[in-house]
C-alpha cells in the first residue's frame, strides 16, 4: 500500500527513530551549504551595477523570507493533518514550526529594513508586501502565545491548528502582493516561473543559501518535534529506551 509510509510516520516511536536518523545528515549538509553560500555571496560573487556591494543583503534576506512562508505552510498543513487524522505526531511538528518561523520572519523584516534604508530611502513603509509579512510575524506570535496559554494539550492542539489554518490565507497574499497592487517592494527575481533576472555568478550562491535555509529549517523542526513527542508520550517501553539513550547522550556532553 502506498500510504504505508504515512501511517508509519504517524506512529511516535517510528517518527522519533526516523527523525533521529535524518538529523545529522540534514544538519551537516545545511552547515556545509550555508558556510559555502555565505563565503561565496560575501566574497566571490560580483557586485551589482545599481546597488554596488549593498545588494549582498539579498543573500540573507531572500532565504529568510522564503523560510518564513515555507515554514508557515508546513505548520498549517501539518496542523490540518493533525486535525483531520487526529494525529499527535502532526500536531508536534506543527508546534515545532512556530519558533523557527517567527525568528526568520523577524530576520526577513529586519534585513529588509536594513536594505531599504540606503536603497529605497526608508526603513519602513506600509507597503502591501511589508504589511502582510508583518502580519505573518503576528500570526506566529499569536500561535505561540495561544499554545502556551491553553493548559489542556488536546484543546491547545485543536485551537492552534485552527489559527494556523486560517492564517495560511496570508501566504499567497504575501507572495502576490507585489503583483496585485502597486507596491514599493520589487517583484521576485528568482522565486517565480520563468528565467531569474540574475546572472549565474550571483544566482548560484543565492540558490545555495535557499537550500541551506530549507535544510536548516528541517533540522530545527525535526529536533523540536522529537522533544515534543517525548513530552507527550505517556507509556511504552520504547520511551524508556529513547529517554535512557538521550540522557546518556546529554550526560556525555556535560
Amino acid at each position: 500500500m502506498t500510504w504505508l509510509w504515512f501511517h508509519k510516520l504517524a506512529s511516535p516511536p517510528h517518527f522519533y527513530r526516523i527523525a533521529g536518523r535524518w538529523l545529522p545528515w540534514l544538519g551537516w549538509s545545511a552547515a556545509v551549504l550555508g558556510v559555502t553560500g555565505l563565503v561565496w555571496g560575501l566574497v566571490l560573487a560580483p557586485s551589482d551595477y545599481q546597488q554596488g556591494e549593498g545588494y549582498r543583503i539579498l543573500y540573507v534576506h531572500a532565504p529568510s523570507a522564503w523560510l518564513s512562508t515555507f515554514t508557515y505552510t508546513t505548520m498549517a498543513v501539518s496542523a490540518a493533518v493533525g486535525l483531520v487524522w487526529r494525529m499527535n505526531v502532526a500536531h508536534s511538528v506543527s508546534a515545532s514550526c512556530a519558533p523557527l518561523g517567527a525568528s526568520f520572519t523577524f530576520v526577513a523584516l529586519a534585513t529588509g529594513s536594513l536594505w531599504g534604508k540606503p536603497m529605497w530611502g526608508t526603513w519602513w513603509e506600509w507597503d502591501p508586501r511589508l504589511t502582510s509579512e508583518l502580519l505573518l510575524l503576528f500570526l506566529y506570535l499569536g500561535y505561540m502565545g495561544l499554545r502556551s496559554a491553553i493548559e489542556d494539550q488536546t484543546r491547545a492542539d485543536r485551537v492552534c491548528a485552527l489559527l494556523a489554518i486560517v492564517g495560511v490565507v496570508n501566504v499567497p497574499i504575501i507572495y502576490y502582493s507585489v503583483e496585485w497592487w502597486n507596491s514599493l517592494h520589487q517583484a521576485p527575481s528568482v522565486m517565480k516561473f520563468g528565467k531569474p533576472t540574475m546572472p549565474a555568478s550571483m544566482l548560484v550562491p543565492l540558490l545555495m543559501m535557499f537550500a541551506a535555509g530549507t535544510l536548516f529549517a528541517a533540522t530545527m523542526v525535526l529536533m523540536r518535534a522529537r522533544g515534543e513527542i517525548l513530552r507527550r508520550e505517556r507509556v511504552g517501553t520504547w520511551l524508556e529506551a529513547a529517554v535512557g539513550e538521550s540522557v546518556a547522550l546529554t550526560g556525555e556532553k556535560r
Binding site: 551595477y49 529605497w120 520589487q186 517583484a187 527575481s189 533576472t197 546572472p199
Partner: peptide, 12 residues
C-alpha cells in the same frame, strides 16, 4: 522621494 528597485541584478 523613495526609489523602487526593478528586481534586476547584474555585475557592473
Amino acid at each position: 522621494v523613495l526609489a523602487k528597485h526593478d528586481e534586476k541584478y547584474m555585475p557592473p
